[in-house]
């Protein structure tokens, strides 16, 4: 395939990946990696490198908007970044040593889990402060809801921190934002409001990805010729997605369609991994 044809196909595919990733809340990385490896026969290391770069672009871009609205809990984000960056560094090191087929299988499993998580209904929860650790670390905060300021407490700091360590490893190993795992840590374990956890998770993704990107960069996993159309395509797709999301109020049917597609892709990744075709 010529550079011109490949660049155009990757650009178009990445645009779709960014769009779907943004509409479903799954992130562009989980869609672009199967696309590159299954359809275009790109080596999974190159695919992961390019995906990781696109993750930094989209998360930084949207975090810039969220942070100004004052919903993001910056202290909570900074504190948990200790866990995600340590995890990401370990994950990137691990990726250098385990077989690509094993990476493909792990990727498939995480992908199914993420698709499942994206279907779960989101409930806004507000809990009063009660954790001593949250108090000491100044994690309890407040956020604006319809011109009012709502205060919330953060619970189970240790459990959330541990889960973030795992989210970091997965992010570094697979080159994705692992937003679904971060939401488990913050919604499920630390019990913070959904809006805060989504924006704070997004805020952390860039730094987490940077911690593993520096390893990938030196190992030659980030190829400029491939990363260029991926990062431009995913970012433009994500921008389009955020514009559509503002207009469309409910997208439940859409989520189901995408969850089925993503689960199919995940199955393909696992199947190919088990047969050592990746």
């Amino acid at each position: 395939m010529s550079v011109a044809v490949l660049t155009l196909i990757v650009l178009a595919g990445s645009y779709v990946a960014g769009l779907v990733g943004s509409l479903t809340g799954l992130g562009g990385g989980v869609v672009i990696i199967p696309l590159l490896t299954l359809l275009l026969n790109v080596n999974i290391h190159y695919a992961i490198g390019a995906s990781l770069i696109s993750v930094i672009a989209t998360s930084s871009g949207s975090a810039a908007a969220y942070v100004k609205e004052g919903i993001t809990n910056i202290r909570l984000g900074m504190f948990l970044e200790i866990a995600t960056t340590i995890g990401a560094m370990a994950g990137a090191m691990l990726a250098l040593h385990i077989q690509t087929s094993v990476i493909a299988v792990i990727f498939g499993v995480i992908l199914i889990f993420s698709a499942f998580m994206s279907l779960k209904p989101k409930k806004e929860q507000i809990h009063p402060p009660k954790s001593q650790w949250a108090e000491k670390l100044k994690l309890n905060s407040s956020y604006p809801v319809n011109d009012q300021t709502v205060s919330y407490g953060v619970q189970n700091v240790g459990g959330g921190f541990f889960m973030m360590l795992f989210a970091g490893v997965i992010s570094g190993l697979l080159g994705i934002g692992s937003g679904a795992l971060k939401v488990v840590a913050m919604d499920g374990i630390m019990r913070i409001p959904f809006k805060v956890s989504t924006t704070t998770s997004n805020f952390m993704i860039g730094v987490t990805a940077a911690a593993s990107a520096v390893v990938y960069l030196q190992r030659g996993y980030i190829d400029p010729g491939l990363s260029m159309p991926v990062v431009i395509g995913v970012l433009l797709g994500a921008l389009t997605g955020s514009k559509i999301l503002v207009k469309a109020s409910s997208s439940k049917g859409l989520r189901w369609v995408f969850a089925v597609i993503v689960t199919f892709l995940a199955g393909q990744m696992i199947y190919n991994g088990l047969n050592h075709r990746i």
Binding site: M1, S2, A4, T7, L36, P224, G225, L226, L235
Partner: peptide
Amino acid sequence: VIISMSVVFIGGCFYWYRHSGETASYS
């Protein structure tokens, strides 16, 4: 994001101009 993406885009134009006819393989 704006600065880095602009640089990537400019580099992409040069890359396209000089190499678009060549064969690419990432397998």
